[in-house]
Nucleic acid binder design. Sequence first.
RNA 1: GGGGCUAUAGCUCAGUCGGCUAGAGCGCAGCAUUCACAUUGCUGAGGUCCAUGGUUCGAGCCCAUGUAGCCCCACCA
Length: 851
Amino acid sequence: MKLAKAYQPELYESDIYALWEKLESFKPAQHGDPYSLVVPPPNANGNLHMGHALAFALQDIAARYQRSIGKSVLFIPGADHAGFETQVVFERELEKKGKSRFDYSRESLYQQIYDFVDNNRDNFATQIRRLGASVYWPSYTFTLDKEIVRLAYDTFRKMWQDSLIYRGERLVNFCTFHGTAFADIEVEYREEKGTLWQIKYPLTDGSGSIVVATTRPETMLGDTAVAVHPQDSRYKDIVGKTVRLPLTNRDIPIIADDYVDRNFGTGAVKITPAHDINDYDVGKRHDLPFITVIGFDGRLTHAVPERFRGLTVVEGREAIVKELTKLGLQVGATEHIHSVGHCYKCSTVIEPLLKEQWFVNIKPLAEPAIAELKKGSINFLPLVKRKQLERYLETIRDWNISRQIAWGIPIPAFQNEEDPDDWIYDERVDQETITVNHKIYRRDPDVFDTWFSSSSWPYATLDYPDGNNYKRYYPLSLMETGFDILMPWVSRMLMLGLYITGQIPFRTVYLHGLVTDKHGLKMSKSKGNVVNPMSVIDKFGSDSLRIGMISGQTPGNNQPYIEAKVIGGRNFCNKLWNIARFVESLVDDFNNRTEAKTETDADHWILLGYSKLLETYVSLMDSYRFSEAFENLYHFIWDDFADWYIEASKVSPNPPLLAALLEAVLVLAHPFAPFLAETIWQTLELSPESVLSSRQLIRLKTADNHKANNFNHIKDLIISVRSTIKAVGAKDVVLYIRNIHSTPENNDVIKRLSQLKSVESTEEGRGIAVSGTSIDCWLDIDQKLIDNYLRTLDIKIAETRTNIDRLQTRLNNKNYVDRAPAELVNQSRSQLVEAEQEMENLLLEKQRYKS
RNA sequence: GGGGCUAUAGCUCAGUCGGCUAGAGCGCAGCAUUCACAUUGCUGAGGUCCAUGGUUCGAGCCCAUGUAGCCCCACCA
């Protein structure tokens, strides 16, 4: 089969992926050291975005590279039910039909969302295939798969038995629009302008009053104390007295607590234990009553005077301030900037509300994780993220794992109808009530936080505890994910991994940054700056997208999506394609070719280049420096192979060597351009038994360094000649080259690549001397151009002088000579000798033309 | 309030152990054109490595301070 003139990815990509699947190319090899990685499961309901394109590129490059060095690679794909996220998406669908989640039972809602996600699954898997991800599909895992649910239950039960789970009425972050609680980390804080009101609370005994400062007057109806600082002399005498809470007939105590900041506001704080996290702590310390005045619907409750009941928080605030003002109790209002928590989906202000929830006592889990981090047993890229994670774990609060949504794993806990404190663990979650010991228990309607189950991902996907995969591939070699989920996900995987398996869950964590638009702004639908990876593939091909994403990429930094980089990738693919076409034109049968012999200087030079490349490539790939590895490969293929070696080949072709080089280079390129490399491999029918994707790195024969270096001199000469010809504006020039440097074949290369009229061997110099090369040679240029030549000569003389001065200054510095490594000093010395020689030649040359 | 990141060519970014003339891609200027490839080739211009101070024989890199932009965490009633 012949290669077409230009690479058209759309003609090949889907066939190539199908071929890989048919041949089970991504099935882990029987032999070889294990290397494992798991896709951080994208939301099963959605389309992949640019962040996924980057993540899959990085992961797949790692996987393919590791296969090429003989590892047994297990690369596991998966999808996340993404509880709350997905329910929100589904609710929007319902909304379009004029329905809401309240129209259905929890079971029905679950089933509908399940079907909805199931319908989208093909779409999702197709996109992963289009990205070329070399995942092993039979190991595909979904976060609601039986085994995953099983593990979530086992984990919950183990924690229950270890007394790490407790149920408590705590303040939770509650979104009154979505009707569910969130973990601390899910709340989005924003700086906002608010008002700080000063409100006078009269003392019950009529002996005066105390003024408190608050941004939330509506919660005063739930106040159960006023707090001042114990050392605050202003209030010393009234601590222990009570105040009559305005708008109510309750008397509440004035207490002393050093939580209070004397310098803020009036130094007196109203304490509302049921609606503020700090007040909650104060309330606990002082054993105050908890009065809930805001309900889960975001409206004032029955605990407030009738005229305020049912008002929203905002309405209540207005009404209360109005009434206080009328009573003369509102004695000040100043603008105040503070940060307010919002629901990250709907922006509703998060209310801290008292709610019974399941919590994980996190300290015992965090401590071993911190210890592992400190030991450095996990390699972080970038390293700085390790410290950040450590700090996060040191201050982490207990983890609320209940969510009040339908889409998720039901919590396997039941409550005694008679005794609310009697909770039992039971997995019969398909039943609303169960009977145990003649007592009726009612199922907790809540589901687990998504992170609770997805944090078991590293071992759950490996069939913990009995699976062979677990035994062979745990801990994972690599966890590649976005740095935005370092805290919510990576931290929890680490804690759970240690807790359940007793081992770290992964050896290396690679964190990529956010893919922004070209101006560095976050991509979002509302800004209209979203680029869809699938349309990029349509336009430029999958490999081009991949190369565009990883070139210049480093871990931990955001990176803009730049189309020019994708185009650069496309051009590279085209270059490699055309190299293959050139080689194809010289080789009849790739499988029955004679062994490559090394003949010309160019042959030795390219072989030496390849072996250097191979060494650099392996060391960079091993340390996850993909961008640099690719850059080296890119320049070898484009500059060395195409621009020099192939050009030289046109003078004296060595087809077997060209074929061997092409083959070798395709193996190195395939992690970066898998579709292209495989297409060439298949089309040229290289090693027909195996696809490229299971081919290991190829070591070529060694080169003669002396001959290779000879070609370097030829290269320098050609560059100098080109540059000189251009500078003086000559055409059709003859080059004379001294006999000892000359071989007929190199002369032909020089002639061709410098576009000379001819190259002739000579004993004596004729014409102008070519500088910047160690080969003695002369260009026979037209006398009329001598002035131009002298000008370029002067420029060169000036440059050389600068160089000599710099080297001399350095060598005159006694400290340098004494303290710098001898190797370096010697290098400087020989550089100086060289430069001086060059100067001498240049001056002589100038002298020749002076008259 | 605590912690962190970033600042290098017109643009987007690399730069590992500090090593001497700081790189890439794109863009720009000029030249080339039936040749594997115009998705091309060749030649070239373009930098106070944010600022100041320090350490060092030597600093883009290490230390200190500052400036600008960004992020994370946590509490501000």
